[in-house]
């Protein structure tokens, strides 16, 4: 049997300790959500709630604030943004990658330069545009600014470029139209990268806070993160209730991450996170 080195043990100890710190907030949030009002103020704090069947905090959260509505709004916004942005991204990436038109490279370089501009700078005018269109506090306000993304287009164009041009030429000789080629060949071939882009977009949309806070107000339109924040001042100031509501917001993304970790991590490693 191989001898286990002391340094290896130490290495694992350090890594597991670090990992514990990284996931501790989630642990504390989820266990806190099941604690009662008296349990949560106990000192020293209890590591586990008395029972995991105490759903009072969740009930309180769902009764006090319309978290079901928030949840549906979040899902709607996420699907709309991912689908619409996905379509414009595919079309644009294809045009820049395969079609020929005057100024193609120049326009693309200009777009890359635009990526440097922080969203925080655009937000002032976008808010006024939305107000000007009388869309403030509507679901459209949450979706319209995110129907295009230079960043995802740039990433997808990179993938499209890696598909051999000869394939395109061959398809053209066979009389395949650009439209057919894009949807029948290119899109299926770049499925992994598309999935990655869409996942990253879905996560970013689900978690977005600044824009929903600026562009919406009423309970009917709020998405989860903003609804959660508003919940604190609407009766959720108690920690155990706050944790229950926060769990509802975080859990779907934890599940997405556990299921699709490879896609997400690879996507991020390729530089794929909205700056």
């Amino acid at each position: 049997m191989k001898k286990i080195k002391f340094s290896t043990v130490l290495l694992y100890l350090v890594l597991f300790f670090g990992a514990l710190i990284m996931i501790f907030p989630f642990y504390w949030m989820i266990t806190g959500a099941f604690k009662t009002g008296t349990e949560i103020v106990q000192m020293p704090p209890t590591m586990l709630p008395n029972s995991f069947t105490n759903l009072d905090n969740f009930k309180f959260a769902f009764q006090t604030a319309p978290f079901v509505t928030y949840f549906i709004n979040s899902v709607e916004m996420m699907i709309a943004c991912v689908v619409l942005c996905g379509v414009t991204t595919i079309l644009t990436a294809f045009a820049f990658s395969r079609l020929r038109f005057p100024g193609r490279n120049l326009i693309f370089s200009c777009l890359l330069a635009l990526m440097m501009v922080p969203f925080e700078m655009l937000v002032i005018t976008n808010y006024r545009t939305i107000v000007g269109w009388h869309l403030h506090d509507t679901k459209w306000a949450l979706i319209l600014p995110f129907t295009t993304s230079i960043f995802y287009t740039y990433i997808l164009k990179g993938f499209f470029d890696s598909i051999p041009e000869s394939l395109y030429q061959a398809a053209k000789v066979d009389g395949c139209s650009d439209w057919k080629y894009l949807w029948r060949v290119m899109v299926p071939m770049s499925k992994p990268s598309l999935v990655t882009i869409m996942l990253l977009n879905a996560i970013a949309t689900w978690n977005s806070f600044m824009w929903p806070m600026i562009a919406t107000n009423s309970k009917e339109v709020r998405t989860l993160p903003f609804g959660l924040y508003a919940f604190i001042s609407e009766g959720g100031a108690k920690n155990e209730r706050m944790m229950a509501a926060a769990t509802v917001v975080v859990l779907p993304m934890i599940i997405v991450f556990l299921v699709a970790r490879k896609y997400i991590v690879n996507g991020v490693a390729r530089g794929g996170l909205k700056g």
Binding site: F26, M29, N207, F209, P225, T247, L258, I264
Partner: peptide
């Protein structure tokens, strides 16, 4: 890796409350 990367996908607002 799962443990170290998890905070990346979760809402700043929700985990901030934790």
């Amino acid at each position: 890796q799962t443990a170290y990367f998890l905070p990346m996908v979760t809402s700043v607002t929700a985990v901030g409350l934790a």
